[in-house]
Amino acid sequence: MEAVRIIPCLDLDRGRVVKGVRYKELRDAGDPVALARRYGEEGADELVILDITASAEGRATTLDVVARAAAEVFIPLTVGGGVSSVESARRLLRAGADKVAVNSAAVARPALISELAAEFGSQCVVLAVDARRRKEDYEVVTHGGRRRTGLDLMAWVSEGASRGAGELLVTSMDRDGTEAGYDLELYASIAQLVELPLVASGGVGNLDQLAAGYLEGRADGLLAASIFHFGRYSLAEARRHLAAAGVPLRALPAASQA
């Protein structure tokens, strides 16, 4: 059976969940462990925690959040932000992450992907990519979209796949925080090129847009943040809406259906 994954994402800044437009104008969205617990209970299929803190203290806080979330939420947990070495990945996995996402550090040193896959297995390694549209194609950008790399997106995800990434998490920096919907063309192109699981991220403002990530973008993971954090939609509403639109989802155990 096929079951598309609905994946709430917690952007973490010094231990709090925040959300902003294109990583700017951050709004506080609450306590990460409480949110993780709620999403887990309400039927999220996975969770992503992205640490957007720059400081060392912030990183330590993230480890603590991951450990506390992993002790009570028994669904897969991907953690990213600042993963730059096998050792930093190991700390997150030890704390309870199931997968680690690498982004800027892998662009700077692509061998990091191979090292992580060799050490922990491909199933642990998520290649997170921030993409920006150019005239004809897409470019990889880093540092929250502030830095251009000149790398062609399709070439980069292919390289990531051949180096042993087990999943792709692709964020459109043109759409992130805009609520204009996923960049569907972006995901459809990647889905055609690479056989890895593909998570769409960036721009979801309503449930039709969430469904379109699968129906038109062919992504099998649908990541969203603010539509869940600020209570606009519950996971249960999202699941009902997607199911009605023809998106295949798992059935939840009877009592956890809202």
């Binding site: 059976m1 096929e2 079951a3 598309v4 491909s122 199933q123 087990g166 056989e195 890895l196 059935a251």
Partner: peptide
Amino acid sequence: PAGRRRPQMQWNL
């Protein structure tokens, strides 16, 4: 087999 996303990374029945 090829034809589906590999690895399988999802909930299944």
